[in-house]
């Protein structure tokens, strides 16, 4: 394994950020402050997680690893909830969706033996599952909000004909689930052609043979397609109910 990156070389690579700041300054984009803030935040967060993961990997304790899985899943749920734009019970809905996605996807990978229950495998895989589920659920919330606003009259008409909230919202639900899954499906289509995804690149960086690396990437792709399907389905099916009150009327 030939992985050598010294703090000094990292400082040199900071010049890449300077290019971004220069463009921002030159074009008067006003984003240089945000660039500094984002980069500083990323460095601090990564440093902390670096130390934390070192501890986790060395400890190799099932309880600590499981706790880390729960923390990641909760953080992802909290962030998805913040993207809900005031959909009621969105924290609960996000938690149910993300915890189910983790349980099913990680569970199948563990049972099939593709992944071992050791922190160096479980933690990154959980991170990928939760990150994807979080983005998908955020998208579903945004789409539900937009569709319920744009198609309000249509929903009212369906309700007035005697449709139940679920019958009235079926077309919106289908659309929201489809749109929520779309980015994951689009990126799966271009894998290897346009993008060499993070996990595969990381393994090759670390010296793994490309054919072994792609096997892992294929597994990750299966996992992410499942995750986006599960999370968008559960989140949309739970969240649409929040657009109706107990009298089966559209809320304002």
């Amino acid at each position: 394994m030939d992985l050598q990156i010294a703090p000094f070389t990292l400082i040199l690579s900071f010049s890449l950020v300077l290019i971004g700041m220069f463009i921002s300054y030159r074009e008067n984009l006003g984003t240089w402050k945000e660039i500094i803030y984002s980069i500083t935040r990323a460095v601090i967060q990564l440093a902390i997680i670096g130390y934390l993961l070192t501890y986790l990997f060395e400890a190799n304790n099932a309880i600590i690893t499981s706790s880390m899985v729960l923390v990641i899943a909760f953080n992802a749920s909290w962030n998805a909830h913040k993207r809900s734009n005031n959909i009621s019970n969105s924290l609960k809905i996000s938690m149910i969706s993300i915890f189910t996605s983790v349980l099913l996807s990680l569970g199948i990978l563990l049972i099939s033996g593709s992944v071992k229950f050791i922190p160096s495998q479980v933690v990154p895989i959980t991170g990928m599952i939760c990150g994807n589920a979080m983005t998908t659920i955020g998208l579903c919330y945004r789409n539900l909000n937009n569709l319920f606003r744009d198609q309000r009259q249509q929903i009212l008409e369906k309700l007035s004909l005697g449709a139940s909230p679920k019958q009235a919202a079926t077309s919106i639900l289908r659309e929201a689930i489809k749109l929520g899954m779309q980015p994951a499906l689009d990126s799966a289509k271009t894998l290897g052609i346009v993008t060499l995804p993070g996990m595969m690149s990381g393994l090759m960086f670390a010296g793994t043979m490309p054919l072994t690396a792609i096997m892992y990437q294929i597994m990750v792709t299966f996992m992410l397609v499942a995750t986006t399907s599960i999370s968008s389905y559960i989140a949309s099916f739970l969240a649409y109910k929040e657009f109706f009150n107990k009298n089966q009327q559209l809320t304002a």
Partner: peptide, 17 residues
């Protein structure tokens, strides 16, 4: 929804779906 099947409302400018 059962009630609205019996008491049906038609809108002024209906939207067809």
């Amino acid at each position: 929804s059962d009630y609205r099947k019996e008491v049906s409302y038609c809108f002024q400018a209906p939207v067809l779906f």
